[in-house]
Design a protein around this nucleic acid. Structure first.
Length: 275
DNA sequence: ATGCCTATTATTAATAGA
């Protein structure tokens, strides 16, 4: 089973790119961010034609998140991150499917630092930590996937010194991410590729894509039951080179369909021992 | 490097993204 996250940067403007990627990559579950479309402008007919059920939380001009599921309807469990009734940004949606709980998030950018937008980002992070703690009490597999707008370490940025005072790399933000992870999450890409330079975003300007001046800011955090099933992880970076493409590339993990039941393992072990 | 590129919204320019 393949689970992906993709900041599409405008679902209507990028629809041909999204459909092309869905057809090629065939992800089972997709978290989308930056729909940049109001609730009634989500291209449901095209998504359904591509074979996906969907739930989404739109917003005029900015933000917007969605969860797609191949051949089924995601069962929505939450819309909006708890902790601030006044926060009207569409940045979090959550659903269950295939026995997995999926949280799709678009964390605030936070620039410029310092300022109210940076404070909002920190506050949002604290709310995510609080919600993450609650999710970790669940026994079922959980993934928190999306655009976190944070490069966790210097390995995740092409030129760290240029980003020291940027809201995506400020120590407070990296610390907030580290605190979240320490609660019991695993950064799936780093788990399987601990030393590799991997990017998920390349700026439209400064010729960033051709010279591979990228950032790793899109992440999939897994709880322990899902880490056990983690097989592969990667970035479909070629998508960044397509016409009229997003500045992000899709990031994905491959997990086994189901963990072998203990009774099955036991039987096999006993058979081996008997033989 | 407070711009460069790209999108949206509303009208030729402002705002946001990262």
């Amino acid at each position: 089973m393949k689970i992906a996250t993709y900041n599409v940067n405008g679902i209507n403007g990028r629809l041909p790119v999204l459909l092309r990627w869905l057809k090629k990559a065939k992800p089972d579950i997709v978290c989308l961010q930056e729909l940049k479309a109001p609730q009634d402008r989500f291209p449901l007919a095209a998504i359904e034609k591509a074979g996906y059920g969907a739930i989404w939380h739109g917003q005029k001009s900015w933000n917007g998140v969605a969860i797609l599921a191949r051949g089924k309807e995601p069962e929505e469990t939450r819309r909006g991150l708890p902790g601030d009734a006044d926060d009207l940004h569409s940045r979090y949606i959550e659903a269950a499917m295939n026995g997995i709980l999926v949280g799709c998030l678009y964390l605030p950018n936070g620039n410029p630092w310092p300022g109210p937008k940076f404070d909002y980002k920190l506050a949002w992070f604290r709310r995510l930590q609080a919600h993450g703690k609650r999710l970790l009490k669940l026994k079922q597999p959980v993934v928190l996937a999306g655009d976190y707008n944070v490069m966790p370490t210097e390995l995740d940025v092409y030129k760290a010194e240029n980003w020291k005072n940027d809201a995506l790399f400020r120590p407070e933000i990296r610390k907030a991410y580290a605190t979240l992870v320490k609660q019991g999450w695993t950064d799936a890409l780093r788990e399987l590729h601990p030393d590799e330079r991997i990017y998920t975003f390349w700026d439209y300007f400064r010729n960033a894509w051709p010279r591979n001046a990228g950032l790793r800011i899109d992440h999939l955090l897994l709880n322990a039951p899902l880490v056990k099933r983690l097989k592969q992880a990667g970035v479909d970076s070629e998508v960044r080179g397509w016409e009229k493409t997003s500045d992000h590339a899709p990031v994905w993990i491959e997990v086994t369909e189901k963990v072998a039941k203990r009774s099955t393992v036991k039987k096999k072990t006993m058979k081996k021992r008997a033989a």
